[in-house]
Computed example of a mutant assay.
Amino acid sequence: MKSLVRFGLLSFAFIGSLCPVDAAPIILWHNQSGQQARFFQKVVGEFNASGRFKEKIQAETGLELESILIPQIDSSVRPDMLFIPSDMIGLYRELYLSEIPSSWKRAQTGIPDDVYQLLTFEGKIYGIPVLGGNHLVLFYNKSHVSVPAKTWQELRDQGQALRSKGIKLIGWPFLEPYYFLPFLQSLAPWTPEQLNTNAMESALSAYHQLTVSGLISAECGQDCNTSRFYRGEFAYAISGDWAVADAKLKLGNRLGIADLPKFGERPLLSGRGLQCLVFSNPKTFSKHRALFLEFGRFLQSEAIQSRWASEALRKPLHKAVATNADDGRATLIPSSKATFYAWLAMKQGLSALRGKTPDFKAIARQIQDVFEQIARTGLQQNAGKR
């Protein structure tokens, strides 16, 4: 009887070994949301359906990408790919990014060579550029605004009439550094390593004055330029090109888009950059190199780039479909490690603007001190201090 049981178990194991077993998915983390996430998921699904590879890419959104920047992260949960902005590429060592083959640029003739400069360190490329843009613009609701303001003074002038109708003037995530940056860059060019400057003090003061004058609340968060703006609570919102598709879906022909209003006579200069595919798990890159690189070619292909423009309303990079439309008044954000450190430092400093009488000189000094501390000790020891 025991021999029959043993034979049965062996037979089951043998038959089971002949049955196909689904390959473990390739995990891709991305920072897209709304319409962008839906389009990206569709593109990933089409690549999987091509049948060229038995392994399938599993795209996951809604994740706090910055959590993976801790070098000691458990390798068992490390994603295989990331779709991230170029200002994170400077952390290529902390992210364990795999080098893109040196022949890539020569083979992918549709993508301009110069965009790779932002992704190159010590002569090696660490990302596949997919999209341009990532810049800020001014949204306005045409139901509330007939002629968009070109200056902040014009905004103030429109505010009283709007408030009399129960409509708030403007919203954006006030304490987020990327939204503060245009005010800083309107005064002087921004260098991530040099944050304790006269320009920083002046920009902090001017930014805080927006809350004192009642133009915006310092507590305005991510909902101010998304759901609350879409509901008509705000007449204006500062948002990014990544949100145009969502805004058009919600507002239709009531959505207007304009340049950021001038601050006095000075234009507000948004940042801009690239959206890139990177490979963040050296073991799986070595094992599935052909799949990873083919997915990169797929995202850079003329067909997908064209659809990114027409369906997701993003800025493609492929020469055949890229438009001459500029990024508004925008400057290229460096992809150095210092840039990411500066975001963390400014986020801490901006939180002090909630106070009624902040010391702008002290805040600028604090921002510089936090930057230097992170530069000395690394992300691991500062990850919980945001």
Rank of each mutant, 00 (worst) to 15 (best):
F263E: 07
I238K: 13
H208W: 13
Y236W: 11
D241F: 09
A199S: 08
R266S: 08
V212F: 00
N196K: 06
Q222L: 12
L184T: 00
S239P: 08
A218I: 06
L260Q: 01
V244A: 07
A235R: 03
A218E: 12
A206Q: 13
V244D: 03
M200Y: 02
Y230S: 10
D259P: 06
P267D: 04
N198Y: 08
P267T: 04
T226N: 15
P261T: 12
E201P: 00
S202W: 02
G214S: 05
N198F: 09
G264K: 02
Y207W: 09
A235E: 02
F234L: 13
A247G: 04
A188M: 08
A206K: 12
S239V: 06
A243E: 15
D259M: 02
E193L: 11
P261V: 11
T226L: 15
E193P: 07
K250G: 07
T191I: 13
L255W: 07
T226C: 11
L195F: 00
T211E: 05
G256T: 08
A203W: 01
F234M: 15
S213A: 04
A243Y: 13
N196Q: 07
A243L: 10
M200C: 10
K262V: 02
P267H: 05
E201K: 09
L204E: 05
E233I: 01
F183L: 02
I216P: 08
G214C: 07
C224A: 15
P189C: 01
I216C: 07
C224G: 10
N253L: 09
H208C: 05
P189K: 02
Q185I: 01
R231Y: 05
F234W: 14
S202E: 14
E193C: 06
G221N: 10
I238S: 10
Q209W: 09
L269P: 01
I238G: 11
E193M: 11
G240M: 14
N196R: 05
K248E: 08
V244S: 03
E201N: 04
G252T: 08
D246M: 06
F183Y: 03
L260R: 01
V244H: 06
N253T: 12
S227N: 09
A199H: 03
Q209L: 14
V212M: 00
